[in-house]
Design a protein around this nucleic acid. Sequence first.
DNA 1: TGTGGTCGTGGAATCGATTCCATGGAATCG
DNA 2: CGATTCCATGGAATCGATTCCACGACCACA
Lengths: 342, 342
Amino acid sequence: MADITIKDVAARAGVSAATASRVLSGNPATSPQARENVAAAVIELDYRPNAQARALRSTHSDSIGLLVPDVRNPFFADLAHTVEQEALSEGYVTLLGNANEQKDQQDRYLDTLISRRVDGIIVAPLGDGGGSIRSLIEREIPTVFVDRTVYGIDVPSVTTDSTGGIRQTVEHLASLGHTRIGYISGPQATSTGRDRFAAFTATVAAAGLSQDPDLVYFGDFQAASGSAGLHALLGLNDPPTALLAADSLMAVGAIAILHKLGLRIGTDLALVAFDDIEWFALLNPALSVISHSVEDMGRIAVEMLLEVIAGNSPQSVVLPSELVVRASSSSPILPAASRRKN
Amino acid sequence: MADITIKDVAARAGVSAATASRVLSGNPATSPQARENVAAAVIELDYRPNAQARALRSTHSDSIGLLVPDVRNPFFADLAHTVEQEALSEGYVTLLGNANEQKDQQDRYLDTLISRRVDGIIVAPLGDGGGSIRSLIEREIPTVFVDRTVYGIDVPSVTTDSTGGIRQTVEHLASLGHTRIGYISGPQATSTGRDRFAAFTATVAAAGLSQDPDLVYFGDFQAASGSAGLHALLGLNDPPTALLAADSLMAVGAIAILHKLGLRIGTDLALVAFDDIEWFALLNPALSVISHSVEDMGRIAVEMLLEVIAGNSPQSVVLPSELVVRASSSSPILPAASRRKN
DNA sequence: TGTGGTCGTGGAATCGATTCCATGGAATCG
DNA sequence: CGATTCCATGGAATCGATTCCACGACCACA
């Protein structure tokens, strides 16, 4: 692993290291002759600049960090893809970290990203503003929140307005005759969990539907809690006739149990999920979803972070969400007598 | 962003930078007094070592690179998750790159990873051994291939033995009465594409089934080519009665078209997909798959890379694959007359 | 008491690239 | 033709952490 340095290139090209550096960074104060010789030497030696040394001297590393709660969640996989492609087109490499929905792993990754002196960080945060999130702010490291925010921390963010999609969903279900809508909520420690829950309770009240607190189950955005939530809701004396899940993984968990119980989605129980995942349309029946654009979210987050890095203070952006009706929620409610009991 | 350096810590603790460095790296040649003072100063100043400077001096960066062809493919998302968690537990950070199934993006990312002097690289390669893959070898950068290999490049790898799962599948379909099995293949520019295709042709011949070359469609591992492949195969004069797709995304593309055409999976057409994805079991009917362990693959790849970094030459590992029969391939074949025509 | 050894410490060199500063040669102007 | 500007260039300082080397203090043993 005999590394080739800029001195080797300079020697080969018959110039000094300073001149070689100037050629490589496109400094105009170089002669055509020098440019040519250096370019040739670079190719002959297959030279790759040492990014560490460069970053050490020049205070920027041309890299950004992206910290997501769970890469296996298709929503965040898509987000990672979009951010990474968008950043690459702007000349930045993305370091992807996975907090695994755990605060200590989030802190550990943030520490690492700080140590590596990334130029900025995009994070879908969890927990309160403690731990390493605070260090980010105190060090004035350019930061953008995506999908989620943290109460009391003033950082530009790109989030989804849950209210529109959830109101459409509640009204849609009400128009089919449903009065008892079950809700599998995300954790109240996340802003998305809180916002969606608030939107649900508000619109249910506005539509005059049942506000029975037993109709709400609090999950953790992962599949197993969707299964548990479904069990809990179906076990009620007066179970819901429609169900809204606050994210795709909890919907998947619920669907698995529905299959196991032999209940028919769309007729025995209407189902809508927050987050649109490509293959939700392939389920039989196809799943109704509240859709929001992950591409827009990723693209805007990168643009916004570049603004912050440039020293500006961009406005936070809230993207709309929208109900997409498919077969899982298109049948009118059945009379209670014909519904199977659990 | 006034960065705090080791000199600030040293000054605060009343020692030299050399001593502070020794304390931080756990060098035993330090007095308890010094250790205590430095530890206190680190906390008071919220000091984070500059990873760039450290890596520059000490030739290792405690980071590895992972380059996958497509993060949105659930198989690679799972792989990324496993590798990242496993590496983290060994004290390494993972830089994730996404080649987007394009050779130029793969080269670009490899260049970046080389520049950043990662300690090693895990890559699911595409294309031949040209471009930056060659640079990796010439520079003797610790490298491990995962899922795929490159012909003629001698690098330790963790791959899946397609043959077992594919033989089981062909024999299973034959036992249901199928004689014409369609195959949507991966690209022959990838080792997995070639291996699975070879296994399919060999086992079909061994089972005495139709070897009609029209039964094979060559896709590119992405969803759209699965749709195209299905159209092509159903358009034959004598279409197949069973279908095997060489990866999950092409299976998804095929399923979408089957739904659109109103064909019933499992009865009108038996379907099996390579790669097990959690929600494949949720489809109706549930999808039969050839399953292989992405956790084992990721874990072994990291272990193997650490071996290579340590200077050893680990043996390549080939993991088994296995057929999991579900409803999409459990009905005996229908007589031709009762099958619908496309 | 003198010699040898251990131990904690600080000074200085080092890693590779960038950039300030000074220099020498060519070009331009009065 | 002499003076001034311009430009390409090399030398040297710099970024922050690590590590080699040397030094002084201390203990132990003969």
